[in-house]
Amino acid sequence: MSIQSSAAAVAAPAKPAGPSLAVRTRMALLVLVAVYPVITGIIYLVAPFTEGWPVWERNFVVAPLMVIAMVYFIIPGIQSRFGRFIATGRVSK
């Protein structure tokens, strides 16, 4: 190995570690608890208007509504209310 390549390897910034399995699991469970009633409600709201449609067409209507709800309401709400619990697993100090 040359001096030049070893110097480049030392100078390269380290990749930050991703979230742990516990953090991902807590987030996934909270998202599941929040998403289930929302998707059920959306399906009930859309069903009368999409009666007789194939599943893929109904999902074409439901999926954007669910994504908007998740990106703008569910995920930010979970992060603001349960951020400490997600990160540490602790409910209070």
Rank of each mutant, 00 (worst) to 15 (best):
A14S: 14
P19V: 12
V61T: 08
S6V: 13
M66H: 12
A87P: 00
T40A: 09
I39L: 08
A8E: 10
P54A: 09
V46K: 09
F49V: 07
R81W: 04
R90Y: 04
V91R: 09
L32S: 10
V35C: 07
I39Q: 12
S2F: 02
E51L: 14
M66K: 10
R84M: 08
A9G: 08
I78Q: 00
L45N: 12
K15H: 10
P48W: 08
M70C: 15
Y36M: 13
I74S: 13
S6E: 14
F85C: 01
F85P: 01
A7N: 14
G77T: 00
F49Q: 04
A17C: 05
S2E: 03
I42P: 04
E57Y: 07
S80A: 08
L32N: 13
V46Y: 14
V55G: 07
P16V: 13
I86Q: 00
V10L: 09
A87D: 03
A7S: 15
V61Q: 03
A28E: 03
L45I: 14
G52K: 01
V33S: 08
R26E: 01
T50Y: 07
A63V: 15
S2L: 01
V91S: 12
I68M: 09
L65N: 02
S6M: 15
V67T: 12
G83T: 01
V61H: 04
P13Y: 08
W53G: 08
I43H: 05
L30G: 03
M27F: 11
V10Y: 04
V62M: 07
L30M: 06
S2C: 09
A8N: 06
A28W: 04
P37D: 12
T88W: 01
M27E: 03
P37N: 10
M27T: 02
M1I: 12
S20R: 00
V91M: 11
S92T: 15
L21G: 11
T40V: 00
V62A: 05
T88N: 06
G89Q: 10
P13D: 06
R81P: 03
F60K: 11
L32D: 07
A17G: 06
V38H: 01
Q79T: 03
A47K: 15
G89D: 05
V38F: 04
V35I: 13
A87Y: 04
G18S: 10
G41C: 09
V67K: 03
F49P: 01
W53K: 07
Y36A: 10
V61F: 04
L45Q: 06
I3L: 15
G52F: 03
G41M: 02
A17P: 06
S80Y: 12
P16N: 05
G18C: 07
V61K: 06
S92Q: 11
P13Q: 13
V62W: 00
Q4S: 11
T88C: 03
F73I: 06
W53N: 03
L32G: 14
M27D: 05
P48Y: 03
I78S: 05
L30K: 06
L21S: 11
A17R: 15
W56E: 02
A8V: 09
R81I: 07
E57I: 12
M66G: 14
I75P: 00
I42A: 02
A34C: 13
R58E: 10
